[in-house]
Amino acid sequence: MLAAHELQLAGRLDGVSAVLKAGTITAICGPNGAGKSSLQEALAGLLRTEHGAVRLDDQPLSALPPRERARRIGYLPQAGEVAWDLSVRGLAALGRLPHGDEAAGPVDAALASLDLVDLADRPISTLSGGEKARALLARVLAGEPRWILADEPLAALDIGHQLSLLGNLRAAAEGGTGVVIVVHDLALAMNHADRVLVLGEGRLVADGPPAEALSEAVIEQVWQVPMRWIGGPGARALVSRATQTA
């Protein structure tokens, strides 16, 4: 269990509380500047808030030694920076740093689960965008964390790679890992998340199953655009209400 209690940080977070459960995918949604990345960094123990606290399994996260925290929470930043031209396996092996070992087992397992075995010896610079996104996720999986926090892992991917990466995250969640992702594409959140947190101006506006948290009313209130959901459960699309009536 990963729980945020009354997180407060001037200009970024305004009293956000949420209790996240392992084994599910939670999506954090909100307009630009709503505090999504701040919330996620706070949940990962990387951002000190002015008030409030994050608790991991009923322990204050700030009391956990950094390496112990790093073994339990894997964080995937948005930028996807890799400064040196490591091999795919070398990149994945960085996930073992908090454990202080180079155990081949978890690295191999991570590469296999992301279908990267054939690419293991390729330098990162030769990968396509989709392959690189998978290699970066392999780094997180190799650390065998209980929680995966990923900041917009789908942003730079085409729809095929988005769905395949979501499949990988779903597999991790079914294995008992808690998955928390920042998502801009509301349809992806609606169709693939178990739960959605909607942030607006640093406040938690909605929190619940996607159909409730991302209702048309919430979207109009938070994003200030009139939108309408079409399609059935698991296959919904978001269209503009303005063009529909026009």
């Binding site: 990387l46 894997g74 964080y75 930043p77 920076e81 890799v82 400064a83 740093l97």
Partner: peptide, 20 residues
């Protein structure tokens, strides 16, 4: 060395890997 390795992924990711 290990902290420098972690820094390959950027400063925030390095901290998330337990680097002080």
């Amino acid at each position: 060395g290990p902290a420098l390795d972690a820094l390959t992924l950027g400063e925030t990711a390095a901290r998330s890997l337990g680097v002080n």
